[in-house]
Amino acid sequence: MRALVAAVIGLAAALALVLTISAIGAPPGETSPKPLLTTVPGPKN
C-alpha cells in the first residue's frame, strides 16, 4: 500500500512539473537555420 501511495505522489509531482513548465512557455528566441551535424564529417573526395 505504501508503494502505491508513493507512486501516486511521484506521478502527481511529475504531472505538476510538466504543467508548470508548459504554463510558463518556451523562452524567447529563434532556432538556427543551419542543421546540426550528428556525425563527424569524413574526408572529402
Rank of each mutant, 00 (worst) to 15 (best):
A3M: 12
T31N: 14
K44C: 15
G42C: 08
T39D: 02
T31V: 15
M1P: 08
L15P: 00
A23W: 11
L17S: 08
G25Y: 06
L4E: 07
G42I: 00
P33L: 01
G29W: 02
G42Y: 03
K44T: 15
L37A: 14
P33I: 01
A23Y: 11
A26Y: 04
P33H: 00
G42P: 01
A7M: 02
I24G: 00
I21P: 00
L15D: 03
T38E: 12
A3I: 09
K44Y: 15
A16T: 08
I9A: 10
E30S: 01
T38N: 09
T20C: 06
L11G: 10
P35M: 05
N45C: 09
R2Q: 14
K34T: 12
L17W: 05
E30L: 01
A26M: 08
P27T: 08
G29S: 10
L36W: 02
L11R: 06
A7R: 05
L15Q: 04
A26E: 07
A7T: 05
T20V: 13
P33M: 00
P41Q: 03
I21L: 15
L11C: 05
P43S: 06
T38D: 11
T38Q: 12
I24L: 13
V5W: 13
G25A: 07
P27C: 11
N45H: 09
S22N: 10
G10W: 05
L17R: 03
T39C: 03
P41W: 02
T39S: 07
M1T: 13
T31R: 15
L37Q: 13
P28D: 12
A7K: 02
